[in-house]
């Protein structure tokens, strides 16, 4: 971004689009298990993620562009997660919240849990914890915003 002497700012269209997208991430309510409680706390008044542009959780995948997969993804739920992901419009982003979603967590030896939701859908940001605190999820969202704006290496 350049600032000229005339008080006019010039930027590229991509930069402007990235700035707009990163500051209006509308998340989808994809609460599958106990991490959803922390996700609700992140959205609620105390740690309001509206401050970062994630206005309100949408109940329809067609109105949202960020999927926070919060909670254990079972093998039976995985095809449904995949289908809901496919229903979201581009550009779409995914945050994997909690160790169950990252690699299976305490259910790693179980028979019914998908060991990592990244086998099902592509994941942008991983937020570890069991469950992650709302502050950690807020940090994950800020990291995703930086990633959209191209400010991080990964």
């Amino acid at each position: 971004m350049k600032t000229g002497d005339l008080g006019v700012k010039t930027t590229t269209l991509e930069k402007a689009l990235e700035w707009g997208r990163s500051n209006s991430l509308w998340p989808l309510t994809m609460g599958l298990a106990c991490c959803a409680i922390e996700m609700m706390a992140t959205q609620a008044a105390d740690l309001d993620i509206s401050r970062f542009g994630s206005e309100i959780f949408r109940n329809s995948p067609r109105q949202s562009d960020l999927m926070i997969v919060a909670g254990t993804t079972t093998k039976r739920m995985a095809p449904r997660v995949r289908r809901i992901y496919e229903e979201m419009p581009y550009p779409k982003y995914v945050i994997a919240m909690g160790v169950c979603v990252i690699q299976g967590g305490p259910y790693v030896d179980g028979y019914s849990v998908v060991l990592g939701v990244d086998k099902v859908i592509p994941v942008d940001v991983y937020v570890p914890g069991c469950p992650p605190s709302p502050q950690a999820l807020t940090y994950g969202i800020i990291t995703l915003q930086k990633k959209i704006r191209g400010e991080t290496d990964r």
């Binding site: 093998k75 095809p79 028979y111």
Partner: peptide, 12 residues
């Protein structure tokens, strides 16, 4: 006697 090593996968 359920064998956990035989992993089963679900699709839809």
């Amino acid at each position: 006697d359920y064998d956990l090593k035989k992993v089963q996968y679900v699709s839809m």
